[in-house]
Design a protein around this nucleic acid. Structure first.
Lengths: 346, 346
DNA sequence: ATCAGGCAATAGAGCGCTCTCCCGGAGCGG
DNA sequence: CCGCTCCGGGAGAGCGCTCTATTGCCTGAT
C-alpha cells in the first residue's frame, strides 16, 4: 500500500525475476522465455508499473521528444510573446503543419514540444533546451526570412529540419515547395480563362517563397506576351491583401485577374474587389495559394494553388527522425510539387 | 577536445571545486562565496556546460513540462488523427489558448507538449505519458462534452486543469466563462437595437457552454416579451452556421436579429443571410461569440461577445502550476465574465 | 564421459544529477 | 582559552533505468 510509484525493482520482486529481465520484457528485446514473459507482464499489470522516462533517458541519451519551433526574425518585446503565438495560429497553415507532424510522431509515441522563437532570448532557450537533451532535435518553421535560428542550430550541430529553404545557405535538411511552378500554374490558369490584364498581390519580398511565386508568375506571363505585370506587395495577412488589391485596382482599374500569394490575401483581395464594385470571378478572377481551410469556407470559394503542407510536415518529421538516429547524416532537401485546385473565384 | 557533452564533474574539475558546489551555483541555492561563484560561472562558460535534464528530473521527480491536451470524445479512426489536429487549429480559438498558456509557461522556462486525445488509445497514451513522469500535469481542452479524459485523470490522481466545466462532475480545477451572461448580453444588445424577431443559431446542445449561452439568451428575451425564440442548432463550424441560418430564415423569414453561439457560425450566418438577399446588419443583425480573429477580418466585422480566452488559458496554467507544486490541493474553479464588443454586424 | 557452444537469466556498473550529512574554520560569548 | 554556533564546502549515497559481462544450464559433438 506504498504511495510511491512502482519501479522496475518492484516489478522484478513481484515477478520473482531480476530487474534486467523485466527491462527486456518492457522493451521487447532479446529472448525471454514466453512463460516468464507472461509472469512479468502480469506483475507489471498488478503493480501498475510505468517506466520512469527520466531514468531511461539518462542512460539512453534520448528524450524521445522533438521540439516544434515556430521561429520569427527580429526581437519582439516581451509583451508580444503570446500575441505572437496567437497570430501564428491564426493562420490555418500552422494547423496543417502540426497535423502533418503529429501524424508522423504519434505512431512512434512521440509528441512535439511547442516553442516560439521570436526573440534572441527565446532562440537561446531553444538551443539550451536541445543541449540539455530535453528534445532530440528541432522542426523549425520560420515566419520570416533572415531567421537566425537555423544557422545557430547548424553551428551547435543540433539535429534540425526546416520548413522551406533558408535564405542564407545553412547545412540543414529542409522540405520545400516548387514555388516557381506554383506561380506558373496560376498564370497559366488565368490565361486559360482569358484574362487580358493579369496582376498579382505578392507576398513579402524578403521571403524567398514570395519571390519564387512571383518569378514563376511573371516569367510565364512574359512568355505569353505580358512583359509588364502590375504588382502590389502584401504581408500574407487578410488586411494586407485587401489593401494591396485596393491599390492595384486604383492603379489599374482594368485588372481582370489576380494571383494572390496566399489564400488569406486572396480572401482580402475578393473583399477589396467587391468593395470597389467588381464581381469575383466575373469581373476579376482571383486565385490564391496554399489551399488552406479558408479557401473552401470563404465566399466565393477560392481557386488556389495547393501546397501539400501536411505531407511536407510529415516528411520533415521523417527527415529529423533519420538525422536523430544517424540513418541520415548529410543535409537533404525534399521539394514538393504544387497543384492547381479550381473552385469558384477563378 | 572530447566530443561528449560536459557534465557537472567536468565543470567542477575545471573550476577546482566539488560537484556539489557547481550544482549550488547552477541552481542558485545556498550561500556560495561570490568569488568561487564567479570561478564556477567562468568554468561553465568555458566548457559550454548545460545541465542534463534527465539526470535532474530523475532525482527531483519533476519534468518541468506540462502537457497541453486537446481532447475529443468518441473514437475516431486512425486515419483521422492528423485531420483532427488540422481541424482543431482551424479554429482560431485554440491559437488563443496556446498563446495564453505559453504566456504563463515561458517566463518559467517551461514549454507545453502538444497531445491529441480523440481516441481511447490516445487517451491511454496521455495517462501513460504523465505516469511516466514526462510531464508534471495536463492542461485539457475538450472539444466535446462527455469527454472521458478528465475522469480518467482525476481517478489516476494526476494533476490537471480543464478549460470549461466538465459535463459530469469531476474533482479537477477548471476555468470557465459565465456563458449565461454572454447569452444575456447578446439578447440585450439585439433588443436595444430594436429587433422584433430575434432568433439564435446555438451550438451543439450536448455541450454545456452551448446550453448556457442559449439559456441566457432565451431567459432574457422571455423577460422582455419573447417567450418563443426560433432556434437552429449548429456545430460551431462555418458550414453548420450557414446551414442553420438558412434553415432559420426559411422557417422564419421575418427574423431580424440572430445570436450565433460562436464567431465561425456567425460568419456562416452572415453568408447565409446574404445569399438569401438580406443585408447585415440592416435587414438582419448578427451577433457572434468569442471575439476571435475572424470577428475583425470577416466582412461585415462581427459584433460579438468577447471571451477572454488568453487570460483564461493563463489562469489554467497558473492553477496547474499551483497543483503541481502542492500550493493548491483542492479543485477550484475560476469563472470569467464575457463582454459585449460592438462592431458592424449588429 | 568431456567439453565446446548457445541461450536464458543475473549481477552490477554506471548514466549525471541533487541533497543530506559531515567537516573544518571563523566568530564569539563566557 | 575553551566550547559553541554558524557557514562555506566536500564526500558520497542514491534516483530508476540500461546494458555489458558473466554465470548457469542444457544440447550435441567428440
Amino acid at each position: 500500500m506504498s504511495r510511491r510509484t512502482p519501479t522496475l525493482e518492484d516489478v522484478a520482486r513481484e515477478a520473482g525475476v531480476s530487474r534486467a529481465t523485466v527491462s527486456r520484457v518492457v522493451n521487447g528485446i532479446r529472448n525471454v522465455d514466453p512463460e516468464i514473459q507472461e509472469v512479468v507482464r502480469r506483475a507489471i499489470e498488478r503493480t501498475g508499473y510505468a517506466p520512469n522516462r527520466a531514468a531511461r533517458s539518462l542512460v539512453t541519451r534520448r528524450a524521445e521528444t522533438v521540439a516544434l519551433v515556430v521561429s520569427g526574425a527580429g526581437d519582439i518585446t516581451d509583451a508580444g510573446q503570446n500575441a505572437f503565438a496567437t497570430r501564428v495560429f491564426a493562420d490555418p497553415f500552422f494547423g496543417r503543419v502540426v497535423g502533418g507532424i503529429v501524424g508522423f510522431l504519434r505512431p512512434r509515441s512521440m509528441h512535439p514540444v511547442l516553442m516560439f522563437a521570436e526573440s534572441t532570448e527565446a532562440r537561446e532557450e531553444v538551443l539550451t533546451y536541445l543541449r540539455q537533451g530535453r528534445a532530440d532535435g528541432a522542426l523549425v518553421v520560420s515566419t520570416h526570412a533572415d531567421d537566425p535560428l537555423p544557422a545557430l542550430l547548424a553551428e551547435a550541430r543540433l539535429p534540425a529540419v526546416l520548413f522551406a529553404r533558408p535564405s542564407r545557405s545553412v547545412p540543414l535538411s529542409y522540405v520545400d515547395l516548387a514555388h516557381r511552378d506554383g506561380g506558373r500554374l496560376a498564370a497559366e490558369h488565368l490565361l486559360a480563362r482569358g484574362c487580358r490584364r493579369p496582376a498579382t498581390v505578392c507576398g513579402p519580398l524578403d521571403v524567398a517563397a514570395s519571390q519564387e511565386r512571383l518569378a514563376g508568375f511573371r516569367d510565364t506571363l512574359a512568355h505569353h506576351g505580358h512583359p509588364q505585370v502590375p504588382v502590389a506587395e502584401g504581408g500574407f495577412t487578410l488586411d494586407s491583401g485587401l489593401a494591396a488589391m485596393s491599390d492595384l485596382l486604383a492603379r489599374h482599374p482594368d485588372t481582370d485577374g489576380v494571383f494572390a500569394a496566399n489564400d488569406l490575401m486572396a480572401q482580402g483581395a475578393c473583399q477589396a474587389a467587391r468593395e470597389r464594385g467588381r464581381r469575383v470571378p466575373e469581373d476579376v478572377a482571383v486565385i490564391g495559394f496554399d489551399d488552406s481551410s479558408i479557401a473552401v469556407t470563404c465566399r466565393p470559394r477560392l481557386t488556389t494553388i495547393r501546397q501539400p503542407v501536411e505531407e511536407m510536415a510529415t516528411e520533415m518529421a521523417r527527415l529529423l527522425d533519420e538525422h536523430i538516429h544517424g540513418v541520415r547524416t548529410e543535409a537533404t532537401s525534399v521539394v514538393f510539387d504544387p497543384e492547381l485546385v479550381v473552385r469558384d473565384s477563378a
